[in-house]
Amino acid sequence: MTLPTKIIQACLLCCTSLLLPLQADTATQELSFSDQLSFYADHPLRSDGHKARNRYRNPVDTLLFFAVEPQHQVLEIWPARGWYTEILAPYLRDQGQLTIAHHRQLQLDADDDRQRFWARISRQLSERIELQPEYFGAVKQLAFDPPELLHLGQEGHYDRVLSFRNAHIWDQHGLLLQSMQEFFRVLKPGGILGMVEHRASRVSDITSFAGEGYLDEAYIIMVAEFAGFQLLDRSEINANPLDTRDHPRGVYSLPPTLAMGSEDRERFLAIGESDRMTLKFIKPEHYSSRPYAVQP
């Protein structure tokens, strides 16, 4: 039986639309790192909502600051809904390798609401990667859920380890140092740990004020150095001077969460996303192993 002409035309149009991203992606290999990242940051397969956050999260400048190159082995910690994964995966797809370390997906029936939430988010990202292999490529995935699941693979394997707005959660549970030590272990000597984190207001050399979700920059640096890292550089790429950091629900009052609902919504939208530190640490070429210790 012959298929109707309209059905055949629709199938051809669908196939063509799938090929267009591949043809465009092939052409990006001739571009500079900056232009490649810009291409994926504004890619048609990214949602309008995700692309709207580029103005606050500055992905191109941030990844260039962390010196992420297409041939690198990169580990992204807790990618959540894949905001950065959407840029990193195709950027690394042909020459390098992206590995994502996210929450356990086997906790969909857990008693804890938070565990169920993150298990569901991780599952959704995994399913999306499987459904769009032509875009994401062969992304490796593993579970990272300290303290039970802390192991991130082979020692000295990655060129870059990247964490975006996660450190406050590890610190809340007393696991920041252990996490930093594991990042140090799996990085190659000379490898970079890139961290973006909500930044607290500094009020003295020994104290800081922070609402929910904010961390002190000096404290993050101290913990990283205790784990063996050296601070290579810091940047104001993701700074937001409009963020007063004294909101009722901390960073969650601001976009994209807007935890206060309709209360002061326009004010929080006008502020934008949180003020953030952007820190670049290096694992020294020559280092001595440090035993795990109590968090400072």
Rank of each mutant, 00 (worst) to 15 (best):
S163K: 00
E148F: 09
F66C: 01
V294G: 05
E285R: 10
D171G: 14
M195N: 13
K188W: 10
Y40Q: 09
Y158R: 01
P44A: 07
H157P: 04
W118A: 00
R104L: 13
E212Y: 13
A227D: 01
E130G: 13
A41Y: 01
V161E: 03
T26F: 12
L19I: 12
D25L: 01
Q181E: 15
L12R: 10
P79W: 03
G191A: 12
E285K: 12
Y91V: 06
K51H: 10
Q36M: 14
F268A: 02
A200N: 02
E76G: 02
S253I: 01
E212H: 11
Q154F: 05
I77L: 15
C11P: 01
L279Q: 00
W118K: 01
Q107W: 12
P147C: 06
N58Y: 08
A24G: 10
Q36F: 01
L125I: 02
Y292N: 09
S235N: 10
K6S: 10
P256M: 07
Y292P: 05
N58P: 03
A101N: 06
A101I: 06
V294W: 07
D275R: 01
Y292W: 09
Y91F: 15
R199E: 03
I129T: 00
Q230R: 12
H173R: 15
E285H: 11
G137D: 08
W83Q: 14
E217R: 15
H102R: 08
K280A: 12
V203Q: 12
Q73D: 11
D233E: 13
L19Q: 04
D145W: 07
I77V: 15
A67R: 15
S179D: 03
L125T: 04
P284S: 07
G49M: 10
R123Y: 07
W170R: 10
L64Y: 08
S201I: 14
P296F: 07
Q73K: 13
H173Y: 15
V223P: 00
A270N: 08
F144T: 05
P189W: 09
R46E: 02
N166G: 05
G49V: 09
Y252S: 05
Y135C: 04
D171A: 13
S201V: 13
